[in-house]
């Protein structure tokens, strides 16, 4: 099965392993990830204002490009996923935005960017299936206690992202179970790492991140997984006592393609 793939900037630089392990795992699972030829940076955060159009256009281009290829669009980085999916939703629900984007891009935005946006986790859950994934695991991560760190961008706004229950998600825990490890449930898993304020208020960001890994450690985690390079960066900068890795690394390990 072929999906269009939007890697995003950071996966080409500081988070190469998030990308590389995903590609290897996808191959092992019989999924073809066809990287969009002409993708541009999503901007990192979604601009929520209704009168802002320019920052949304790169997402629109990605949506149109995937639609032209006739594929669903797979994302890996939480931030890219959030931005692209929310842009699509805004065009769907805001007439003014749809009109302005159509006018600027000289297209019918609602029709031409009507592409299904799928996060890699959703692909594992809905296309591969966690039961199937479990069967394909060659190195089960038995005995490892792994804390899923969702952060904000995959979950919220819940109504738009439709990823999982934003207050009590389970998709990453189900993923961890499929790999043979034990998920660690802790209350801070859907709290913010501090995000972009790390650029000028690094202390504040560290305080947020510290609360998260302390909570995970307190409940006995020996590893944390994330899909977001910025979350990982903030946790590491806050001197996380629990190792933080990308979820694709664990996946590749379990599938024997690391």
């Amino acid at each position: 099965m072929t999906f269009s793939y939007y890697p995003g900037c950071t996966l080409k630089t500081k988070a190469k392993e998030l990308d590389a392990y995903a590609r290897r795992s996808a191959e092992a699972l019989g999924i073809t990830l066809a990287e969009l030829p002409d993708w541009q940076c999503c901007g990192g955060v979604y601009n929520n204002t209704k009168d802002e159009i320019a920052t949304k256009l790169s997402s629109v281009r990605a949506l149109i490009s995937a639609k032209e290829q006739g594929n669903k669009l797979v994302t890996l980085c939480s931030a890219c996923h959030n931005v692209i999916k929310r842009t699509k939703n805004e065009i769907e629900t805001n007439d003014d935005m749809a009109f302005r984007v159509s006018n600027y891009m000289q297209c019918d935005a609602r029709k031409d960017s009507d592409t299904e946006v799928v996060h890699f986790f959703e692909l594992l859950r809905d296309t591969v299936g966690f039961d199937e994934l479990k069967k394909k695991v060659v190195n089960p991560l038995t005995g490892r206690k792994i804390a899923a760190y969702y952060g904000c961008l995959l979950l919220r706004p819940g109504k738009v992202l439709q990823f999982d229950n934003p207050e009590n998600p389970k998709i990453m825990e189900d993923f961890i179970r499929a790999l043979g490890a034990t998920p660690v449930i802790y209350p801070m898993r859907n709290e913010c790492c501090g995000g972009y304020i790390a650029i000028e208020s690094s202390e504040a960001a560290r305080k947020n991140s510290a609360a998260i890994y302390e909570s995970a450690e307190g409940f006995g985690a020996d590893c944390m997984i994330t899909a977001c390079p910025l979350c990982r960066y903030n946790l590491i900068k806050a001197e996380s006592t629990v190792p933080v890795v990308y979820f694709t690394e664990l996946l590749a390990e379990a599938l024997g393609v690391k």
Binding site: P187, M188, E191, S215, G218, F219, G220
Partner: peptide, 12 residues
């Protein structure tokens, strides 16, 4: 805004 169960059994 949130109730957070703690490892020691308390609720923050």
């Amino acid at each position: 805004g949130k109730v957070m169960p703690q490892p020691d059994g308390k609720l923050l």
